[in-house]
């Protein structure tokens, strides 16, 4: 059957409109649910930096929300480590800051959320500080949450996520055994300089004696470099805040 051009064009237009309406309709309906799921996922990632993954997996969404509520407090700081409460007349909260969007701005202009893991019901009994980090992997963005112990030096834990790293290679940054490697490592060297923790090239070596090095990802050198750059740059951005809140630093002396 040979149809006229007019028929083909009409058919295509109708099909496009129908499918377009169907898709935008579903997207609109599902948006609030998707947003909730995404927020829950962010909370899981934040908690993942200070808790074992199995424990989080075992929790129901409501439990995660209430646990997050009772154990995490948050604030927003600028590059100088000063707390920011509003910007351009609008209130800012750590949860609403899009780290990815901020990443496109100049480091000086960015807002930096800080999440504080504390004892239940006591905001001052800080257990660890969690800092979001953001950067580029091989194909797309990578991000994560780095938790420091109260000495602001030792890594308590870390979680990584990615948008499109190669499964089995770069995507391994999300696996717990890779993230475990960062535990107990130190971001400052003996003379107090910020050196971050650097993932090495090649895999399978033992770096347990070296506080600033972790084993690499075989076959994912560029992702690993992205992770290194991300950690280093964000630790630099948070440096002012980190220095201010070091145990025994000026803030404590005032008390």
């Amino acid at each position: 059957m040979q149809q006229s051009n007019a028929y083909i064009i009409t058919f295509s237009i109708i099909l496009t409109v129908v499918l377009g309406l169907l898709l935008s309709g579903t997207a609109e309906v599902l948006k609030p649910i998707q947003k909730k799921a995404e927020e829950l996922d962010t909370k899981k990632q934040i908690l993942g930096a200070v808790m074992p993954a199995e424990k989080i997996d075992a929790m129901k969404p409501d439990e995660i929300n209430s646990f997050y509520q009772s154990r995490i407090s948050s604030k927003v700081v600028n590059i100088d480590g000063e707390e920011v409460e509003e910007q351009d007349g609008a209130q800012v909260t750590a949860e609403t800051i899009d780290v990815g969007k901020n990443y496109k701005k100049d480091p000086e202009d960015r807002l930096y959320p800080v999440f504080i893991f504390h004892e239940e019901g006591n905001v001052d009994a800080v257990a660890s500080y969690i800092f979001p980090v953001y950067g580029n992997g091989l194909w797309d963005n990578i991000w994560g949450y780095l938790a420091l112990q109260t000495n602001m030096e030792t890594i308590e834990g870390i979680t990584f996520s990615h948008a499109g790293e190669t499964p089995g290679l770069g995507a391994r940054i999300t696996s717990t055994d890779v993230q475990e490697r960062y535990k107990e490592k130190s971001i400052f060297n003996e003379s107090g300089e910020l050196v971050s923790v650097v993932m090495q090239k090649g895999e399978g070596k033992d770096y347990s004696g070296e506080p600033h090095k972790v084993d690499g990802l075989s076959g994912a050198t560029i992702t690993a470099e992205g992770v290194n750059k991300m950690l280093k740059s964000y630790l630099e951005h948070y440096k002012a805040y980190i220095e201010k809140n070091k145990e025994g630093a000026s803030g404590m002396a005032l008390n």
């Binding site: 149809q3 083909i8 058919f11 295509s12 499918l19 579903t26 599902l30 649910i33 998707q34 799921a37």
Partner: peptide
């Protein structure tokens, strides 16, 4: 379905369905 554009039509239908699945997964 006009025979001359049938592959595109099939593709559009399949792509829409797949997007639906993806949206539902993202939500639930």
């Amino acid at each position: 379905i006009p025979t001359r554009v049938r592959i595109i039509v099939q593709l559009a239908v399949v792509a829409s369905l797949v997007t639906l699945v993806n949206e539902v997964l993202q939500a639930f």
